[in-house]
Each structure stands twice: as structure tokens, then as C-alpha cells.
Amino acid sequence: MFVAATLAILAAMALAVVRAIKGPTVFDRVLAGNSMGSLAILLLAAVGFLTGRPEFLDIGLTYGLLNLIGTLAVLRFFRHGDLAYDPGTKRRR
């Protein structure tokens, strides 16, 4: 069963890659990148159970946090045009 799940996750990853490459708009790409991170977490969990080491799940949590940071940075870049690298704008908000 875990083999089937792993194969399904890999197929989903391929679809996400296609969307990230073709993606006509920016948001397609953001979403594809984000779902790629989620799929990496799922793959981590599935492979962990496949090899009989469910301790991998803890690392999946770290991945989730990282994925959130990356997506937030991207979205913030789109909202404000930069990452608030200029400290003056950071004060004003």
C-alpha cells in the first residue's frame, strides 16, 4: 500500500513540475512550488513507513515550517515589490 502511495506522490510531483514550468501566471508557479514542498513531506512520510522508520515524521515537521517561510517570502515579494529590505519601509508598516 505504501508503494502505491509513493508512486502516486511521485506522479503528483511530476504534475507539479509541469505546472511550475508551464505556469502562465506567477500564482500557478507559487502554488506549484508550495505543493512541491508538501509532496516532499508526504514522500518523506511514505518512504519512512516503507523502510520501517517512522521517526522520519519529525523531520517532515521541519520541512513544513521551511515551506511556509519560503512561500511567505514569495508572496510578500509580490505584495510589496521587495522583501522590505529597505528598513524605512519596514518601519512604516
Binding site: V17, R29, G33, G37, A40, L43, V74
Partner: peptide, 12 residues
Amino acid sequence: ILSGAYSFLMAS
């Protein structure tokens, strides 16, 4: 975005 995706693939 694609380089981020690449990193996740590499991690996998």
C-alpha cells in the same frame, strides 16, 4: 520558484 522545486526534489 523552479530552483526551490529543485531543492525539494534533491531533498527527496
